[in-house]
Write a protein that binds this DNA or RNA. Structure first.
Lengths: 203, 203
DNA sequence: CATAAGTCGAACATGCGTGTACGACAAGAG
DNA sequence: CTCTTGTCGTACACGCATGTTCGACTTATG
């Protein structure tokens, strides 16, 4: 891993391992190295040839996942109508969450707390900026801490992923459900919840 | 465990183990038997003297937790004003969740799926009844599946517990936050979110 | 096609959590 | 006070996941 593999199949295997690890860990954060190697169609020894540790492997997976996530989330326009912006953010976030699922849980067990906090801060700040924006316009509620609202948004998204995995919620309805849910809860007391016109943006 | 302990200190130890296991597993579902025994101020061997297995121990803990939970949840009046009833239900549910936290996760790993589903069905049905009631009165939204709303309620409550454990949310504000959150997201689009008058019931 | 680079299975070492066995010792019930 | 019932420490057996080592075998690359 310190020096790149010279041969083509080696590089292909590294990719396969990364992919398999992502998929496997997203389903079961406690998956064994053996499971991952098997899922990658590769011997366990080969895996160790490319990644010294479980920790190193997880770190690599997380790093790649974060790069891709950031790439698709960074470009989102958070300005303009807060409700519409929220739908945009949720839509993109949902795709990422569905792909990487419970990978976060696996990461939490082998990554130092500091790094973990740093990894979380980016998306949290994004959501927080959006909510602040909506508050400034009087469109989002101010009677609850922003951090709590952000937490709720994260949690609800995660719950949707779990529900989809469990077959309780159709995957193509998930983003809509999350958006409708969040839009409802972000609307201030004494104010009318935005109607379906906005929600239709999702699908 | 099959036959009750005859001696007083034995019975006391069983209680201590049950208490320690509840507290320890609520924090870390993967806690070892050793940790639990230590937390109970008891030798590991003693623990095995009372509970054959980890599974048996977990089952006992869960069973006791469910008995207590059911006792405090069964009596709740779900009729009348849906918003007020929701606040009542959340208030009681919150106490239970705070005490038993992530114990569910520990249970999921050693209990058969069927039993687990059965254990979940009771509280889910309760919430579902309440939401249905609110829908009938046109006070709760009908544009999302009931099961999703119930899941969300469960998830949000759980997130609150995690936040409190992490010190991000004061314990005495949690129930209020959950109630405000759920009331907000349950209100139908095109309708005014109930104001603070109801929420004040919580605190 | 020759060789360096990579793969693979089997075997081994290690650490950890679980569960059991033993024997000395303490504590409660009658 | 005596004897049954528990407790506790130590030690052991076992299974399981993690890493490592070895040697034979395969594959890309120049």
């Amino acid at each position: 891993m310190t020096t790149r593999p010279r041969r083509a199949d080696a590089r292909r295997n590294v990719e396969a391992i990364l992919d398999a690890a992502t998929a496997t860990l997203a389903r079961d954060p406690d998956a064994s190295i053996n499971d991952i190697a098997k899922a990658a169609g590769v011997g366990r020894v080969t895996l160790y040839g490319h990644f010294e540790n479980r920790a190193v492997l997880v770190a690599a997976v997380v790093e790649r996942a974060m790069r891709e996530s950031e790439a698709s989330l960074r470009g989102i326009d958070l300005s303009g109508d807060p409700a519409a912006a929220l739908v945009r953010l949720i839509d993109a976030t949902w795709q990422v969450t569905l792909r990487y699922g419970a990978l976060v849980v696996a990461a939490e067990k082998s990554m130092p707390v500091a790094e973990m906090a740093a990894a979380h801060s980016e998306p949290r700040e994004r959501a927080q900026r959006l909510i602040d924006h909506g508050r400034d316009l009087g469109r989002f509620r101010t009677d609850l801490p922003v951090s709590w609202l952000v937490t709720t948004m994260h949690t609800v998204t995660h719950a949707a992923a779990t529900s989809v995995y469990a077959g309780e919620l159709p995957a193509d309805e998930a983003a809509h459900a999350i958006a409708a849910t969040m839009l409802g809860l972000l609307t201030p007391p004494g104010q009318t919840v935005p109607d379906v016109g906005v929600l239709r943006l999702v699908r």
